[in-house]
Amino acid sequence: MKKLFLIVLLVLLVLPLMAAPLTIKLAHLNPQDPFDVPSAAMAATFKSEVEANSNGQIIVELYPNGVLGKERETMLQVKAGIVQSFISSSGGLSTFYPLIDVTNLPFAFSSYNVGYEVYDGDFGQELAADIEKQAGFKVLGFGESGGFFAITNSRREVRTPADMRGLKIRVMSVPLHQEVVKSLGASPTVVAWAEVYTSLQTGVVDGQMNPISIINMAKFYEVQDYITLTNHLYAPYVWVMNPRFYNGLTADQKKIVDDAARTAILAGRGVSRVIDSSDKGLPVLLEKMNVYVPTAAEMKQFRDLAIPAARAFLERTYKSQGKYWVDRFLSAVEDAEAKLGY
């Protein structure tokens, strides 16, 4: 009897130590190639950091390539708690939180460092809190989605907005992007991603806008002669987590998750900057296309047209909330530039 009691006591003591580890299912839409894809670098770094710092008590399962569904479907799975976390594009979040459109305000950032300061600082924290309040997603941070956008076309060098007149520019089905292109004098044309190369090749559209790495990856240099480094858009990935899951973590577990997410976001940004400066980025385009960098005076011409048009669209669409977030965003940009000495 005494021996049986000791065995039962030992089992009761050991069982808590043998409890199954906590699992975080983390999804994103891109291939899991951490040296080529920023979201993959984020996912891989997060997994490594969480599992190491929790001594294996938290396991991170990665679901890349959209294997769990398209963005809306995966976001709904996060909301339901079926999937714990997702690295979403701003477009993917917009269905649930339309005001994320403010991150598409054009010509806002003079450098990547200003963007990092804005999204990692008070503005990013306030925006994250509003996303959780309004849409029901905990935001772990704002990550790298590919970098600054450039404009390409097959007809002529674009130095100022005057050179945009008459050009048909492919855009995504994002109304704010369409307003920006119109404000610069060009004609926005919505074309599905799968049809962009052919549309450029056949002249259905004259040009398009995307980050350097995407332009290179899609081989648009085969059907486009000119590229202008306008750096006019820099919308981040929004890394979300189910708030019930997050709030159910212990204080130590939250710290592990938060620290890992911050480190992972830095990794994603680093990978993107390396890609831009490697044989997958700008050096290739310098050899294959006519590359133009607008002067400060020329950039001002772009900003003076695009920012008021974007502001008017956001205020017209989102009323007082649109005005608040545009003002808050531009104020955060000014504060970041002052802090960094720009």
Rank of each mutant, 00 (worst) to 15 (best):
N153K: 05
A310D: 09
G69F: 05
V14I: 15
M289K: 04
D276L: 13
R170M: 14
V257W: 03
G270V: 07
V11D: 05
L12F: 13
D252S: 14
T189P: 01
V14K: 02
F142H: 09
E73C: 09
S278H: 04
D122G: 02
A261W: 04
D163S: 08
S88E: 01
P34E: 07
V118T: 10
V223P: 05
L127P: 04
V118N: 05
Y318G: 11
F148P: 09
K182T: 14
R244P: 02
I151R: 01
Y119H: 08
V271F: 02
I58M: 10
K323L: 13
Q201V: 02
L266R: 09
W325T: 14
P106V: 00
E132W: 04
K323N: 14
E126C: 01
E132S: 07
A261S: 13
F86I: 08
K255G: 09
Y116R: 10
D252T: 14
K219S: 14
N153V: 14
T152A: 13
A194Q: 15
E334F: 01
A186E: 03
F329N: 13
V204G: 12
D130G: 01
S272C: 06
L127C: 09
V223F: 07
E195N: 14
S145L: 11
W193N: 13
Q125A: 14
A251V: 12
R72L: 13
P38F: 08
L6K: 03
T202P: 00
A108N: 03
V158T: 11
L200K: 00
D304V: 11
V114Q: 01
E157C: 08
Q125H: 12
R159N: 06
M241P: 01
E195M: 08
N55I: 03
E179L: 08
V50L: 08
F46A: 12
R311W: 06
S48P: 00
P243D: 01
V118W: 04
G121M: 09
E73S: 13
R303W: 01
T152K: 06
L167G: 01
F220E: 07
Y237C: 12
T228Y: 02
L68R: 04
Q77H: 09
V171S: 12
V67A: 10
Y342K: 13
A264Q: 06
Y237S: 15
A129C: 05
M289H: 06
A251M: 10
L26A: 03
T198V: 08
M164G: 05
V257M: 03
V11P: 05
K138V: 08
W193P: 00
M241A: 02
S277T: 10
A297E: 15
L229P: 04
A27K: 00
D327I: 02
I100C: 07
L99R: 00
I82L: 15
P294R: 07
V223E: 10
M42C: 12
T198M: 10
T228G: 07
M172R: 05
R155V: 15
D101A: 04
A267C: 05
Q57D: 12
P243T: 12
P16H: 08
I169V: 10
A251Q: 14
K138Y: 09
F35K: 15
S173K: 02
L6H: 03
Q208Y: 13
A44P: 08
A52L: 11
A19Q: 09
L249W: 01
A20Q: 13
F220H: 06
E73W: 06
G147C: 10
Q125M: 12
G147Y: 04
L314M: 15
E315C: 00
L76Y: 03
V291K: 02
V196S: 00
